[in-house]
Design a protein around this nucleic acid. Sequence first.
DNA 1: ATGAAAGCGCTAACAC
DNA 2: GTGTTAGCGCTTTCAT
Lengths: 357, 357
Amino acid sequence: LVTTNRSTSKARSVTLKQVAQAVGVHASTVSRALNPATRSVVAPEVVERVLEVAASLGYSPNLMAAGLRTGRSHLVAALVPNIANTVFSLILSGATERLSAEGYSLVVVDVGDTPSRQLQLTKQLVSRRIDGLILATAQRDDPLVAFCIEEHLPAVLVNRFEERRRLSAVVSDDTLGMQLAVDHLVHLGHVQIGHLAGPESISTGHLRRKGFNEAMALNGLAGPDIPVEAAVSYSRDEGAVATERLLGRHPGLTAIVAANDLLALGAYDAIRKLGWSCPGDVSIVGHNDMPLVDIVSPPLTTVRISHHEIGREAADLLLQRMRGDSDTSMRNVILAPELIVRASTAAPRADKKRPGR
Amino acid sequence: LVTTNRSTSKARSVTLKQVAQAVGVHASTVSRALNPATRSVVAPEVVERVLEVAASLGYSPNLMAAGLRTGRSHLVAALVPNIANTVFSLILSGATERLSAEGYSLVVVDVGDTPSRQLQLTKQLVSRRIDGLILATAQRDDPLVAFCIEEHLPAVLVNRFEERRRLSAVVSDDTLGMQLAVDHLVHLGHVQIGHLAGPESISTGHLRRKGFNEAMALNGLAGPDIPVEAAVSYSRDEGAVATERLLGRHPGLTAIVAANDLLALGAYDAIRKLGWSCPGDVSIVGHNDMPLVDIVSPPLTTVRISHHEIGREAADLLLQRMRGDSDTSMRNVILAPELIVRASTAAPRADKKRPGR
DNA sequence: ATGAAAGCGCTAACAC
DNA sequence: GTGTTAGCGCTTTCAT
């Protein structure tokens, strides 16, 4: 029945004011001493004492209070369609590197690929007054991008373009990537090459398909009926489904260029199901060079994008955007990919004999 | 030279007060109307008008302000040693599911595995006044855990135990997992079985090694010199290095149980380098069943942990901990794993002939 | 059922 | 170089 002071549960944290009292100065002095930018204005000996006392008291600044006052949260959010896709992890670690150096924390949010849910989660983030947004989710025409524009929310896109170029983006050169892939296959002797495309609603799906067509034309392989089949989403399962369609309609194909690695792995599944072999019956090229594709069976030939650099560049662009008041600096950064040749591609078989279906 | 009101840059957001003025009531009424918990106390027609006006004005509550006032940020952070390890992604998506249903946002932070950096980043999070922490980083004796205790920071561990059991944890049954793996190999006819262990400083490394030894003993295979070699970290590269050591010291091994999938894949690399084959020359069992190990060459036999459930359970435990004021409810949840047999395990070769070194 | 008033912890003019 | 003051946007007693 006795009210005690024992800190049984959640201890109140130490405030700036308490530090000030302990030092014997005013709170604002402590604030100035603690902030590197204003520190120079305080007497050196006072700074020293403040730092000392703050440390000994275990003072931890309340960023919510500071943020309320300054209007900046020093929080940046990254929206990814699927956190388990390691391509995004690599991009994010590149971004984190830059961002944390500037005192920003990065919130990674797995938002799936339903625009409505994406919008809902973004609104939550806006309520938290995040300072900026990195979008790995962009559709070619994306309502979320429109939302960011309306809200004057600093944002940059990674890996995917938005059609109307309303936001800066850092992407890999999809046209070049497809060029690399097709040239490689042609070099090996392939003529009947098909494309396992990504969703047309996403820039990578669209651009890589276009790039594929162009690369085929450049190699004199353009035709009235270019073998292309698009997957509904960038997943291994949908890759398998689309591959079955592709091979069903074009049984003579000897090589497939996939719009990304997950689709390529789905193609592996489909080919295995058919009783065919890769690269014996059909060669496959992926895109992205995500972790572990070097160890799958067979090791995947793929177009490596500069994940890390994409992340870093995006962070730089965003930082710039968050600092500057000029809304004008819209720019795209397009990084060159590189072909990594492994064992999923080989010259086409001379006899063309394959297990029947 | 004319000062205008044109919202050229960052528009000020709409405040509660502005909504109140528009409706013609006091701010506190709007606050009550907007909060589902207190809504019942406001006249229904007023509630309706508030909701309407708030929506039309595009009102977005300032969670920093609310948090400052209430002392709760509704933010939970998850610390992972490596965001590109898909095992954690799966756990996180399980946790997100629960957390977001309760109005919490999940910040995923890639903190690496250096304790000092982990502590530094955690302090930043504390400054943000996060309400809780999910730790996937725990060492067997972890300074970060001590820190959480000191700070009265609600936290739960996933995937890894902390030795002194100061915090609740949700983990897979490592002993059982090893049992499953060893029994399977013994069943296939293996006798010379080695263990590719994880770091001893991490509970999974320690417990799985112990589990391995026990399982061997249970199968009458205990000996004075049980073949075990520990990797320095849970990475594919270190797995390869440790495998070379293991096979160097125990050339007669016909099977290896790895402490996790990444190590197992490293073992693949080492075996390939030796010119040996799996499972022909040596069978390999992994642990975790992370994405894509079904498609590597050969498809990996592995112990599947219930990632998703681990995440969900952890979130539940944390939620409970953040609500309750009783610091007493320390508990561990141990989930049973399941053996997934694929093609990396087979009966040992009768002749035992292998390529020389 | 609603309004008034206070205050969460911090920063930034402004004074001196 | 330091103190004073006000206020960021919200919630929550306490009145009425």
